[in-house]
């Protein structure tokens, strides 16, 4: 009963989605514009490109297995690296007013450089390949993590620090048990922002210099005037973006449960 109600309620919320899809289908079929293929054609092309493989490969094609994990790997490598470096630097900035004064203009400048502008530079430095893409991603997404971690570490509750001092916690313990956890909600906000940025930079870096990955497939489809393939790649990237964000939110809810509830009750 409850399941049915829930389904009906979800259907009530989502009713516009099928309406839009059908309208799009009808409009594109009537217009017969090759630039705007109908959604069914796009879906068929996506199926052909990625999801028509053998059952033992979970129906994924060679094309899917070659490109999707590669792209995801670049996103995660860049994201993790940026997360570690950004958090470490950010906490140093947050705990040392002096240090932050010295490097603040550099950070403000680095943050303002549009990351794609650095692509040719990394391309010259590393040549085509994963290194160049990961470097672009790290440079482009580190700023929100760094600034948020700094902000979080700067605003640790004074009483938390005094309690730690009164019980004589060592520097290391203070860092890992008090400063890091209390900056965590902020760091997570930064990590979430950078995850969606990482997706964008993965795509642009694969469009500019790559021989595989979803971005490369997109470029390939564009060059061969495969319009359903272009649309399909965009849809696939949208789905990936949605899934990444949803997975991140689920993880955050688990890890930061103390933060949500503690702030509600006090």
């Amino acid at each position: 009963m409850g399941a049915v109600m829930r389904f009906l309620r979800a259907a009530g919320r989502l009713w516009l989605v099928p309406v839009v899809l059908v309208a799009w289908e009808v409009a594109t079929r009537m217009a017969e514009d090759i630039f705007f293929p109908p959604p069914t054609t796009i879906a068929a092309r996506m199926h052909e490109l990625w999801f028509s493989g053998p059952a033992q490969q979970l129906w994924l094609t060679e094309g899917a297995l070659d490109n999707i994990p590669t792209s995801l790997g670049r996103i995660f490598a860049g994201w993790l690296l940026a997360g570690v470096i950004g958090t470490a630097l950010g906490i140093m900035l947050g705990r040392s007013e002096r240090f932050s004064q010295f490097v603040d203009p550099l950070i403000q400048f680095g943050r303002a450089i549009p990351p794609p502008a650095l692509l040719p530079f990394f391309l010259a430095l590393f040549a085509v390949g994963a290194q160049m893409q990961i470097a672009t991603i790290v440079f482009g997404i580190i700023w929100p993590i760094l600034l948020n971690a700094g902000d979080g570490a700067r605003h640790v509750d004074r009483l938390h620090l005094e309690t730690a001092a009164a019980f004589g916690l060592s520097r290391g313990q203070r860092l890992t048990r008090v400063i890091l956890p209390s900056a965590m909600p902020k760091i997570f906000a930064g990590l979430r922002l950078s995850l969606s940025l990482a997706l964008i930079l993965m795509v642009i870096s694969e469009l500019v210099g790559s021989t595989n990955g979803i971005g490369f497939q997109l470029l390939d489809a564009q060059r061969s005037y495969d319009y359903p393939g272009v649309w399909g790649s965009i849809v696939l990237l949208g789905v990936l973006g949605y899934l990444l964000n949803a997975a991140f939110l689920a993880a955050e809810r688990r890890i930061l449960s103390w933060h949500r509830t503690a702030n509600q009750t006090t």
Binding site: R13, S196, L237
Partner: peptide, 26 residues
């Protein structure tokens, strides 16, 4: 807003740079 929200939620995660190749064609 309630009706459009799911449509927006589907469109928003699309990385905007992925639209450049399409825009180049259009």
């Amino acid at each position: 807003e309630a009706a459009l929200r799911p449509v927006l939620e589907f469109l928003r995660p699309i990385p905007s740079v992925a639209l450049i190749p399409l825009a180049l064609l259009l």
